Amino acid sequence: MTPGDGFAGQVAAAWRKAAAARARAERAEKSAQRYEAWAAETGHTPHIDLAAALRRSAACHRSSADLQEAFARRVAAWGQGPGERPRFMSGVAEVCGAESVALTLVDARNSQLAVAASGEPARAAQDLEFMLGEGPSRDATTHRGLVFASGEAIETRWPCFGPALTALGVREVAAAPLDTAASSRCLGALAVFDPRPGLVGSRAFDDVVGALTRLVLCDPDADPELYGGTDHRDSVQQAAGMVSVHVGCRVDDALALIKARAFTRGVPLDALSRAIVAGDLTFTREGPS
């Protein structure tokens, strides 16, 4: 679904997906109960293991329903009123009890392919990671494990990214990989900024990450665009191609030039890229003009 489908269509789709997820959760719970009953009768360990797996699946489905419902409520309340339409990730932030959250999708080299953020400072934080090449989401995808830092540890762990992140007012950050057993690599990461106490490392957080990975992104009827809230950084890639031609360098080097320019000037990366694409800013061998 795209933004052109209208907010009413998005609300209806979110409620429909939430209802389907809750129905799947109920079926999984009933199946788990049957296996538990059989285990009690027979003492077979495999039945216990299957029941546990089904209960985990049910929890994941319920979390998916929570995410869809949170998004539906926010968009319905917004209606066609003033301000920006709520993004799907704002519902994720609500469920997590966090100030803001961001989801990143990465390629085989763990470079950002796309980002979906609930708002600021999550979007600014992901731009910083993209520009500086370090940060919690990058660590989570590289090492395929949970990352957490707070206070001074943020600046110690990420010497370039850390001070810039704390300057945004962030006091704590956590990131978890979007990982599946069926994939040989990590799909991306969920970063949570200033999460509520006790969230990180909890079963509830694991369920949210699992829901985003398997049900929102990987299911046959999933919506990787997250109702139009996913940014594929098309303008950045287009700008890198243009700078590559003007300067006579590789696209990767051109992208590095754009990132450096945006960071040193304190300009949003997308805004700078759009200026390049529009011809308002050009790069030559002598530098930007």
Rank of each mutant, 00 (worst) to 15 (best):
S150M: 08
S235Q: 08
L113W: 01
R214V: 09
L212S: 14
F193W: 11
G266E: 07
R55C: 04
R87K: 09
A20D: 00
I48P: 01
R233S: 07
V106Y: 05
V243T: 10
A275K: 15
L50N: 03
A65K: 04
G81L: 14
V192H: 12
T230M: 09
I48D: 00
G169L: 12
D127E: 15
W158K: 05
A149D: 07
C160P: 01
S235V: 12
A72F: 05
L54A: 10
D253I: 11
D221S: 04
A271Y: 05
V101I: 04
R144L: 11
R24M: 11
L50P: 00
A278Q: 10
F263H: 12
T230N: 02
S183L: 11
A271P: 06
A37L: 08
Q112E: 10
L199R: 09
G43T: 13
V95F: 12
V245N: 00
E26Y: 06
K259G: 02
M242C: 00
G188W: 13
V192S: 07
R261F: 14
S57Y: 14
D219V: 04
V173I: 13
S289W: 03
A59R: 08
A23F: 08
R56Q: 14
D221C: 11
E26N: 01
L146H: 07
F88N: 11
D253T: 15
D270N: 03
G201K: 13
V101A: 00
G151A: 09
G81S: 09
E84T: 13
R62A: 13
C249N: 07
T213F: 02
E172Q: 10
P82S: 08
L217Q: 05
I154P: 06
A189H: 06
T104H: 10
A222W: 03
R265E: 04
R250Q: 14
S202A: 12
P136C: 00
A76P: 00
R16H: 11
V75E: 04
A19M: 01
G228M: 08
M89L: 15
V92A: 03
L226G: 00
A77Y: 05
A76C: 00
V75W: 14
S137E: 15
S90M: 12
A72C: 08
V277P: 14
G119D: 13
A108T: 09
L128P: 01
G198W: 00
A174K: 11
A23Q: 15
D139G: 05
Q80K: 03
Q68K: 05
E99I: 02
T264M: 14
D179M: 15
V251F: 06
L168F: 09
L50K: 05
D219A: 15
E94W: 02
V267I: 05
D270A: 15
A204M: 11
Q10K: 05
E155I: 04
P220N: 10
R138I: 13
K259W: 05
G188I: 13
L168W: 07
S235L: 13
R171D: 14
G266I: 14
S31R: 12
W15A: 14
A39M: 11
P46D: 03
D219P: 03
W158A: 06
P288Y: 12
A40F: 10
L215A: 06
P136F: 00
T141G: 02
K17G: 03
S244A: 15
R203V: 03
L113T: 02
L257C: 08
